[in-house]
Design a protein around this nucleic acid. Structure first.
Length: 848
RNA sequence: GGGCGCUUAGCUCAGUUGGUUAGAGCAGCUGCCUUACAAGCAGCAGGUCGGGGGUUCGAGUCCCUCAGCGCCCACCA
């Protein structure tokens, strides 16, 4: 079963959990225990597409929860003999980092400024933000994220993640940018990426376009305003957009407006002439059944505008203010001047006043609560502005692609399986292609330039692409081949695309980044497609979907075979833990208080995909378990003596064979659970077995193990203890890597984490031994203890007469374990008598 | 307005195709220095499995329905 030891076990007098983390983390690093074997072939490899945590301050317990669960899976697979490819990434790309840098250093990015090589940020952020160039800003982003990444790595090492720390990447590093840009250029070459001028959702504070995946609805107080367009009354929550109105629309079957379709009405205050049109998307029972279409008030407006081929009357700027000059068809009169240049909110107030005064508003505004679209990180509602953006086809406008992606989702093994529904719902609900360009600075640049024509206008239909060999590029500073730097922005020259890509555009290529798609074909061959994507449920629609999409487009393959979706951490009030709620507990303090194994125990108790409360009570149990592992190991190993550990053939006692039989079943059950990615069940089985092993089996064989009896009996017990302990150390290893490594080191060579996973057949023919001996003996022992406890006697109290009544099979089992029962129970005389059911009569000695 | 998940002992949670008196730990109570472990050990007590209906010989488990909680989605008139 286990490799025999060389020499006697070295067991400390006082085993302790103190400092195990530091000692073993260092040892693993020095020994390269978790290094990927780069001579491995694909068939031998188990590769994990680890989620790169967002580097924005600190990790919280929710992160520890998910990553530890994945680590338990990884450790099991490693012990099963797979060569683990388990890298770690840092997601330092994007808006969270930008915002942190702004706040931390008190700077703001102004891309029009030149690079200042001597720039140093102030010690303390000043009152006003210092404007700096994009290269300077990016340098600060790198500086800050590097510090965070060291902190994160320290924490992960302390938690005991068995990742290969020689293989880390950052989503903003050269390789990631190169991978992301290369993938984009391939999308472009295949027609999957395209640029287009179109109405897009726009955050007026962040000054950037926002993708569908980044939007969320928030309930907001608003009001219905009933407005008169000649004799037709409409209801709107956005009266400030009357000047942007281009039509009214009602349902084709709505009889109230049937005779008006095709006619025109005039907008209140501005008198612009707008048509009354029919469209099936209009809902007869909403408001007055007829809606005003503005360019653009909401995404439905965009649909109507496109499908009814309406003109554009944009009045909201990218900064969220009304334009200075009125749109075509709207007179620059008193009404316009009242809203020109005002914020949307101010304009609304002004409009309501004017509409009330002119009598064009019927009654008072009716307050309502309604969902309004926000950027998930934004603070003001999104507006819709027309701008040129890059898109990647994602099935939102292509039924064939949508069907293919759904088929990929079905081919993926989801754990738990019901998580697939979230993917399916998202893919079915996509209503447009993926907007990947962002008007931000710290991200992967869109790697194209555009020729500038004689008129000074860029030609966006003919982007200039770089050679893949020169990636990564920054088109705002790099010059395309065939051009000189002086030609930037001049007629006949070129201009760089000013945008960066959505953070998901880079996160969606983590398999390609980690597996070396751009620079290590041998590694890519050995690791891709990957085996496992572990992640949270909330980013199925973003990270999982977009990764799957790009692998489908580029490689025509699923990026991984399995996806494990972890649950959330909830606090005592069953609220999701998040920094904004202020209910986050910092992991390092918790790890120090309870020990890493205890925290890991808590995490591994959370069922796959199931939300779990942050419960320090469970950590205490984990700590107790770890201590028990120390002590039980100390006892068993202390019994082995100096000679060679007796092997399987020394097991001659029926009780010992019974224990090994149970052990064999345990190993099989635990292995089956792990194979289903159910680490929690594997832990539960192991833990339950271990406690009864300690409480019943060890107590029963203690006397024999001390050698107080025949040599054969002693050797049988010692062999069994050694076999069981060896298996238990390994079964616990994925969950409690520190304490198991500690006890393993007392008597074995090498790391337990590289030891072979136990097999049910390791116990030989004892796998089929009768377990009744052990269950009957345990039951009798339990009855003796109950009698002693009930009589408030010490466990050391003698039993003068023990009478066991039961059916023949049970009595035979009791006879087979007679010596152990007598020794463990302190029994002077044991008699058995036939009966229908097992019953035990205990006569205690008088107190003396 | 849809979808998914959850609701089992005071607390945190198991309960795999429906099958004998529903399990564990924590907390509580009663005891015990027992040559691995007092950060321990032994034992006791504690539940109409969210409510209601149904299928079945039999339901915590399957179906319907209602309620609460959480998450995700949804075209802001």
């Amino acid at each position: 079963m286990s490799t025999p030891t060389t020499g006697a076990p070295r067991v400390p007098d006082k085993p302790t959990l103190d400092n195990l983390e530091e000692r073993w983390a260092t040892s693993w690093e020095e020994a390269g225990t978790y290094r990927f074997d780069d001579t491995a072939t694909r068939a031998e490899v188990f590769s994990i597409d680890t989620p790169p945590p967002t580097v924005s301050g600190s990790l919280h317990m929710g992160s520890v929860f998910g990553y530890v669960q994945t680590d338990a899976i990884a450790r099991y697979r490693r012990m099963r003999g797979w060569k683990l490819f388990y890298p770690m990434g840092w997601d330092d790309n994007g808006l969270p980092t930008e915002r942190r840098v702004q706040n931390y250093f008190g700077v703001t990015c102004d891309p029009s400024l030149p690079y200042d090589p001597d720039f140093r940020p102030p010690e303390e952020p000043g009152k006003d933000d210092i404007p700096i160039s994009r290269p300077n800003f990016i340098a600060l982003c790198h500086q800050l994220t590097a510090e965070d990444e060291r902190t994160f790595e320290d924490l992960w090492r302390r938690v005991g993640l068995s990742v290969d720390w020689a293989r880390t990447y950052a989503t903003i590093d050269d390789k990631s940018r190169r991978t992301s840009q290369r993938m984009f250029l391939h999308n472009l070459a295949r027609g999957e990426a395209y640029t287009s001028e179109a109405p897009t959702l726009w955050d007026v504070d962040f000054q950037t376009a926002v993708a569908q995946a980044e939007m969320e609805d928030r309930q907001l107080a608003g009001a219905y305003h009933r407005l008169r367009f000649d004799d037709i009354e409409i209801e709107t929550t956005r009266p400030e957009l009357v000047a942007a109105c281009v039509a009214l629309v009602a349902h084709p079957d709505d009889e109230r407006y049937a005779d008006r379709f095709g006619s025109t009405v005039h907008t209140p205050l501005f008198g612009a002439e707008v048509p009354v049109l029919a469209h099936p998307l209009a809902e007869p029972d909403k408001g007055s059944g007829i809606a005003m279409i503005c360019t653009f008030g909401d995404v439905t407006d965009v649909v109507w505008w496109r499908e009814l081929d309406l003109p554009t009357r944009s009045i909201v700027t990218r900064s969220g203010r009304i334009t200075e000059t009125p749109p075509p068809g709207v007179p620059d009169g008193e009404a316009w001047r009242a809203i020109a240049g005002r914020s949307v909110k101010q304009a609304q107030r002004a409009m309501v006043e004017m509409l009330a005064a002119s009598g064009d508003m019927v009654g008072d505004p009716r307050p309502i609560e309604h969902p309004v679209k926000f950027y998930e990180r934004g603070s003001r509602p999104l507006e819709i502005v027309t701008s040129r953006q890059w898109f990647i086809r994602n099935g939102g406008r292509d039924d064939d692609l949508r069907r293919d992606l759904l088929a990929r989702g079905t081919a993926l093994d989801w754990h738990p399986s019901y998580m697939q529904v979230r993917f399916d719902d998202w893919v079915r609900g996509l209503n447009g292609d993926w907007l990947v360009s962002r008007q931000r600075f710290f991200g992967v640049p869109v790697p194209v330039w555009y020729p500038v024509g004689p008129d000074g206008e860029a030609d966006h239909t003919a982007p200039i692409v770089p050679d893949e060999a020169v990636l990564p590029v920054d088109p705002t500073t790099d010059v395309p081949e065939g051009y000189a730097p002086e030609q930037r922005g001049v007629p006949g020259g070129f201009t760089g695309d000013p945008d960066v890509m959505d953070t998901w555009a880079t996160s969606s290529v983590t398999p390609q980044i980690a597996c070396g798609w751009v620079d290590d074909p041998a590694l890519f061959e050995a690791t891709f497609p990957m085996d496992l994507r572990p992640q949270g449920p909330e980013i199925i629609r973003t990270w999982l979907f977009s990764t799957l999409l790009r692998s489908h487009q580029e490689h025509d393959v699923l990026p991984w075979r399995h996806a494990t979706i972890n649950g959330w951490i909830l606090d005592k009030d069953r609220k999701k833990m998040s920094k904004s709620k202020g209910n986050v507990i910092t992991p390092m303090a918790t790890l120090e208080e309870f020990g890493s194994d205890a925290v890991r125990y808590w995490a591994c108790n959370g069922r796959p995909g199931t939300d779990t409360a942050l419960d320090i009570g469970v950590m205490k149990i984990g700590r107790r378990l770890a201590i028990k592992v120390l002590n039980a190991s100390k006892f068993a190993l202390g019994r082995l003596g100096d000679g060679p550990v007796p092997g399987l053939d020394a097991v001659v006692m029926p009780l010992d064979a019974a224990l090994l039989s149970q052990l064999s079943s345990l190993v099989e059950a635990v292995t089956a659970a792990h194979d289903e990615f159910d680490y929690a069940r594997a832990l539960e089985f192991t833990e339950t077995f271990f406690w009864s092993f300690c409480d019943d089996y060890v107590e029963l064989v203690k006397t024999r193990a001390y050698g107080e009896g025949t040599a054969g009996g002693a050797n049988s017990a010692r062999a069994t203890l050694a076999l069981a302990l060896s298996a238990l150390h390994r079964l616990f290893a994925p969950f409690l890597p520190f304490v198991t490594e500690e006890v393993w080191s007392w008597w074995q060579e090498g790391s337990v984490h590289l030891a072979p996973w136990p097999e049910g057949t390791d116990v030989g023919t004892h796998a089929r031994a009768d377990t009744t001996v052990l269950t009957a003996a345990a039951e009798v022992l339990s009855a003796i203890r109950r009698e002693k406890t009930t009589n408030k006697r010490s466990m050391r109290a003698r039993v003068t007469l023990l009478t066991v009544t039961g059916p023949p099979a049970t009595l035979a089992a009791v006879e087979a374990a007679r010596g152990d029962i007598v020794d463990a129970g302190g029994v002077d005389q044991l008699v058995v008598s036939a009966g229908d059911t097992l019953s035990v009569d205990v006569v205690l000695a008088d107190e003396s």
